[in-house]
Amino acid sequence: MKKNVLRVEGISVSYGPIQALDDVSIEVDEGEIVSLVGANGAGKTSLLRAIMGLQKVHTGRIVFMGNDITNTSTDKVAGSGIGLIPEGHLVFSTMTVLENLQVGGYHYPQEVSSSLESVFESFPVLYKRRNQIAGTLSGGEQQMLSIGRTLMSKPKLLMADEPSLGLAPKVISEIFNILRDLNEKGYPILLAEQNAKKALEFGDHAYVMETGRVLFQGPAKELMGNPKVRHAYLGGNV
């Protein structure tokens, strides 16, 4: 049996009077890719934000590597080993590529140079552009920098929020290949993705969300064959 990495147990989150998450439970096991599928506003980002401590959780709890991290401050969640690749290929745009990676290693100052080496090995383009201001990179390169910066923090779980958003199709498959490679290297991945087809193809396990609830869950292949899921998220007879 695989070891559990992340377990979210029945959490609820609301923004004022609006309930963003209602009794949501998910699990991520070692070595696994888990996809969160759902339309814009289904609660995927809210779930990632709640795990990250960016959003207050009212009920339920979040357990990471056996520790309760419910409502822990964001920097501590990051320090404990959850690496979020945020939506919109976010980088520190006034800093250089190298500086972006260096601050990513905040919790491991002694190991910055060795981490840098392995990130540059995985992303030769970042090495080529290391002294360039990050704001001048292309969208795809910024997404790679965002992934590389997250790897600098030696995460035990990677969470990617809409990694394909705003990128060209060719770049999107490149980013997904990178995430696939990272998973093969052993990183468990929790992926939030609007493109249901892509997310179901990519994931081992998937959760289909709608208006803050988990509607369906199961092995991604099975969900792909589920007529209801096909009808609602894969455009009928795909």
Partner: peptide, 23 residues
């Protein structure tokens, strides 16, 4: 290192906390 942390926080405090900087 501390200077980079200051500059990262000044540019985007949410992103800074996501990468583990104690705000």
């Amino acid at each position: 290192r501390q200077g980079r942390v200051f500059r990262a926080l000044s540019e985007n405090s949410v992103l800074a906390s996501i990468i583990g900087i104690p705000v």
